[in-house]
Design a protein around this nucleic acid. Structure first.
Lengths: 178, 178
DNA sequence: CCTTGCCATGCAATTAGTTGCATGGTTAGG
DNA sequence: CCTAACCATGCAACTAATTGCATGGCAAGG
C-alpha cells in the first residue's frame, strides 16, 4: 500500500513525469520501495483521480506529450496520515535463504554467495559515495536532511549485513580455496 | 516463484499436512519466506498435480480428513535444479524507510523506531536461542547442519542490522529524552 | 452448556505486482 | 540511412499475495 506514499515522498522532493518517477524507482527511492513502471503509471492515475497529485500535460511540437505531476495539499495530508501510522515488519521472501536452509549444491551456493557479495558491495559503494557527497558532516544535519540521511544509513547497514552474511557463508563452505 | 521450493525444503525436513506447513510458515521457514495459508494450500495442490509431492489422505473417525504430503523424487530433482540456479537480490518494500525518507512526524517516527527495535530484539532472541540449542559448537557442524545454520546466521545478522538502524535513528531523533 | 481456540481444508473477491509489447516521438553512432 | 537507445505513456494478460469467511470437526475453560 505504500507505493502511493513512496511516490508522494518523491514528488515532495521534486515534481516529475511518470517517466522521471520510473527512473527514480530504478535507484534512489527505488532502493526502499521497488515498483514497476506500470505500477507507477497506474498509481499516478489513481492518485490524480483521488486528488493527491495534480498532473499538467504539456503538448510539445515534435515530441510526445508529457504530464508533470506535483503533490497537492490533499497529498500532503495523506502523507501526514501515513507518517503517523506505525509500520510493520516487511515480509521477507528470500530464494537464497531457502536455498541455504535446504543446502544441496555447495558449489552453486558458493558461487551464489560470491555474486551476492559483489552485488551488496556495489550497492554499498553507491550508498557510501552518496553519504559522503550529501552528508559529509552527520553531526550537523539540517531538519530536512535527517530523514533521508537515516533512510540511507538503513541501506548502508543492510548492505553491510549482507556482506557479513556472505563472508560467513564463504568461510564455512569455501574451505578448499582459502 | 520460490514458495514451491520453500515448501519442498520444509517437506524434506519432515512430511506434513497443509495445516502443519501453515504453522511452520508462521515461524521457522516462514522467517525466510512469508506465505499465507491459502498460498500454501493452493501451491500444494499444484505441486501434487506436478508430481513434486505426494499427498496421502487419512479419513479419521470423529475428526476431519487430513492429507499428509511428502516430497517425491521429482520434487527432489526440482530442488536440485533450484539449488543450481543463481538467486537475485530480493526486492525491498519498506514502509518505514519511505516514512524516514520523507520524515514529517518525528514523534511518530521515534515511537515506530522503538516498536521496531523491540520487534527485532524479540526475533533476535528467538534466533539466538535456536542457535544455542541447535548449534552449540559452530566449528563442529555436520554436513546437514551447515545450510540451516548459515540460514539462521543470516537471520541473526539481519536482526542485528535492524537494531543498529533503530539505535541510530533514536540517537538522531530522540535527543530530548536521552 | 457455551465460547473460544485449535485442527483441517478451501472459496472468493480482491489487491499487488510483472512483463512484454505497443505506440509515437528524438538522438546518436556506425 | 539504419539501428539502438532514450523519452513518454499505457494496454493486456498474466501471476503473486491477501483476507476473511465457510465448512466441519475436537478440546479446554468458564
Amino acid at each position: 500500500m505504500a507505493l502511493e506514499h513512496a511516490i508522494l515522498v518523491s514528488l515532495t522532493e521534486q515534481s516529475a513525469t511518470g517517466y522521471d518517477l520510473a527512473r527514480r524507482f530504478d535507484a534512489s527511492i527505488g532502493y526502499f520501495w521497488r515498483a514497476s513502471h506500470q505500477q507507477i503509471y497506474r498509481t499516478l492515475t489513481r492518485m490524480a483521480a483521488d486528488g493527491w497529485v495534480e498532473g499538467t500535460t504539456e503538448h510539445r511540437d515534435g515530441a510526445t506529450d508529457r504530464t508533470t505531476y506535483a503533490i497537492t495539499s490533499a497529498g500532503r495530508a495523506e502523507l501526514g496520515r501515513f507518517s503517523a501510522t506505525p509500520s510493520s515488519r516487511e515480509p521477507l521472501r528470500s530464494d537464497f535463504a531457502v536455498k541455504l536452509r535446504g543446502l544441496l549444491d555447495t558449489e552453486a551456493a558458493i558461487a551464489d554467495a560470491k555474486a551476492r557479495r559483489a552485488d551488496h558491495q556495489a550497492r554499498l559503494d553507491t550508498y557510501e559515495a552518496s553519504e559522503k557527497r550529501h552528508y559529509p558532516d552527520p553531526a550537523a544535519l539540517t531538519e530536512d536532511e535527517r530523514g533521508p540521511y537515516l533512510a540511507l544509513r538503513g541501506g548502508i547497514l543492510l548492505e553491510r549485513a549482507g556482506i557479513a552474511w556472505c563472508d560467513e557463508i564463504l568461510g564455512h563452505l569455501d574451505r578448499s580455496e582459502r
